[in-house]
Design a protein around this nucleic acid. Structure first.
Lengths: 147, 147
DNA sequence: GTGCCACTTCAAGTCGACTTGAGGTCAAGC
DNA sequence: GCTTGACCTCAAGTCGACTTGAAGTGGCAC
């Protein structure tokens, strides 16, 4: 029965209390009880928060994450949907790989202007072709600087 | 000398004219001339826009992207910085891979509650441990829904 | 030469994901 | 029993990345 109040969850997860309240309101996590006014969280929530962080860094919105992992943190979607999400992530990994390779290439390529380097153009054009594939399910998103 | 005006760039790149003006203002792209009031873009810009899209889907902010690829689209950063960016992307690929594997696991695992499945917990905890590594350079970011 | 329409600028609005601030509550230690 | 400090709620603010709207401009087809 060792429950944590929001400050401890924040300390253990590295997520601000205000964000945790926001997540609760959004239905991503839930507190198991109150001690006076204070929310009490079960240790379980830390695992859920890890899942949420993973989803966020994958570029999913909180709404999408809520869709993947129900309020209790365990996904209750049809297998097919989950596999489609996984496929979307695979495509994103492809894109990231292309970007990483492009970056490493330009770091090492001695050509004066990369725009004229055939290897560079090939890397970018290949990425463009892949991105043009009309298989968009999970999508790229902006980031906001952590404050 | 075949320059394009903004509508054509938008059509070819799939990026809205308003966004292209915003990018120009942010110093991510530049028009080569004006035809009356109208901006004229060189075909080069399409490659730059691909680079920008890649960066965005990697979770970089426009400012970071502007830092990676100068106004002319070719990076002019020290090699070390570029390699560090690439390393950050590598870490993100790791995270995405973990999330994908977790998703595929829950799709196929017959356990009634994933929270009690040891494989599930191991996957998530491994990801948590990796995320806890204090090697943060490139960071995860939220996404806004495409409209 | 006139009308159309794709462009232009600039200010304001929107959206997601939080944070901040004001004002309030309450359990625990003294 | 009183203070303290960690929590509470609710409204408003912020930030990045755009979009929208109003009002104007100018090349080109007719």
């Amino acid at each position: 029965m060792k429950f944590m109040d929001i400050g401890e969850v924040a300390a253990r997860s590295g997520i601000a209390p205000s964000a945790l309240r926001y997540y609760e309101q959004a239905g991503l996590i839930s507190s198991v009880a109150r001690h006076g006014l204070r929310r009490q969280f079960s240790p379980e929530v830390l695992l859920q928060l890890t899942l949420i962080s993973m989803g966020k860094s994958a570029g999913f919105s909180l709404e999408e994450i809520a869709g993947m992992f129900g309020r209790n943190g365990t996904p209750d979607l049809p297998r097919a949907v989950l596999h489609r999400k996984a496929d979307a992530i695979d495509r994103q990994i492809q894109e990231l790989t292309a970007l990483r390779d492009t970056l490493r290439h330009v770091a090492d390529c001695p050509a004066p202007s990369h725009m004229e380097c055939p290897t560079f153009r090939r890397l970018v054009e290949t990425a463009a072709r892949r991105a043009a594939k009309p298989t968009r399910t999970g999508r790229p998103k902006p980031r906001s600087a952590p404050r």
